[in-house]
Structures are given as C-alpha cells and as structure tokens.
Simulated scan of single mutants.
Amino acid sequence: MSTAPRIAFDDYLAISRLYSEYALAVDSGDWDLWPEFFTEDCTYKLVPRENHERGFPLATLLFESKGMLKDRVYGIRETLFHDPYYQRHVVSAPVVIAASENRFEAQANYAVFRTKLSRESTVFNVGRYIDVIKRTPAGLKFATRLCVYDSEMIPNSIIYPI
C-alpha cells in the first residue's frame, strides 16, 4: 500500500468540502451550480470500470471544457425529455494520492441513489471518482473528474451529472 502525501489540514479540509459541496449541488437540481466546480479547461468523463482498467478511450459521457458542461445544463433543462427523478450521492472521504502547491490528485468512492416519483429508491450508479484538483483564485476546482462506474449495466440514459 502506498503512502499518501502529507498535506496541510486546511488543504484536506478544502478538498473534503469540494467533494461534499459538489454532491450537494448535483443533488439539489440547481444545475447552474455544477459547472462552477470546474476549471475553464476541465475534463468530465463517465467511463465503465472495464474500459478504464483496459485503457480503452470509450466513455459514456465526455465533456472537455466548462462551456461543454454549461451546454449539458442547457440540455438538462431544455432539450432532454425523461421521467423526472431525484438523486442522492453518498461519497466517501477523499484520499489524496499526490499533491503539489497548486495541484492535488484525489480519489473517493461514490454511490448514487435514484428516486422516481411514486416509486421506491434504487441504486443508480456506484463507482469512484479519480480527480485532479487545482487551486484557483476562486478556490479549489476540478480540472479533471473521472467517474469510473463499476457495473457493466447502466440505465439506458444518464441525464444528471454523477
């Protein structure tokens, strides 16, 4: 087992807060908040575990800038038709893998539960985040968010961010 780098407590607290506030934002349904967790030249990628482990480039979702994230928000609100549902994230404490003065690599496990109106809650997506986080004048932001989900089977559409 590798040893995690030593980082300042304030930095770890800020990273933990970034993960918590991200989950709160995407669960709230206030989609304008979502892109603000990212740098301008970010990457957000949702990929099955098998593809990730084999180094295959195919992704379920891939956005390569904050502008693309904003376009997705527009799509969620204006163009995508689906049964409405609520989602709730449960995210583990992040583990910092690498750190420098203005850049952190971190991982955390996640589980997303989905509740459709008038139905029971179900497990929707489970996996781990593999992130590159950068220090910016506006605070810590995700430069890269790789969501690696465990199941080979997923619902036929993923509308909201994981």
Rank of each mutant, 00 (worst) to 15 (best):
S28G: 07
L24Y: 09
E78S: 14
P137Q: 10
N109Q: 12
E78W: 09
R88P: 01
C42G: 07
Y85C: 13
M1H: 05
D71L: 15
F56M: 12
H89A: 13
T39P: 05
K134I: 13
V90W: 06
F124Y: 13
E36Q: 09
K116V: 12
E152M: 12
F142G: 01
A8H: 13
I162H: 05
A106N: 05
V123L: 15
F113T: 05
T115C: 08
A8W: 04
W34Y: 13
I158A: 02
T39W: 02
S121M: 07
Y19C: 06
L80H: 03
G139R: 06
R77P: 03
F124T: 03
P5N: 06
P161E: 10
D131F: 00
K116H: 09
I15M: 06
V132D: 00
R119V: 10
S157T: 11
E101F: 01
D27R: 04
Y110M: 13
A8I: 04
D71C: 09
E40K: 14
K141R: 15
H82I: 13
A99K: 02
K116C: 14
V47I: 15
R88D: 06
S121F: 01
D11I: 08
F37Y: 12
E152G: 14
T3N: 12
P5C: 01
P5E: 06
V47T: 15
T144Q: 07
Y44E: 07
A23H: 02
S28E: 13
N51S: 10
N109M: 13
K70W: 11
E36L: 12
R135N: 00
E40V: 10
F113D: 04
L58S: 14
S100V: 04
G127F: 08
L140W: 01
V126K: 02
Y19G: 01
F142N: 00
E152N: 12
R103H: 12
F124S: 02
I97E: 11
R114P: 03
I162G: 01
M1P: 07
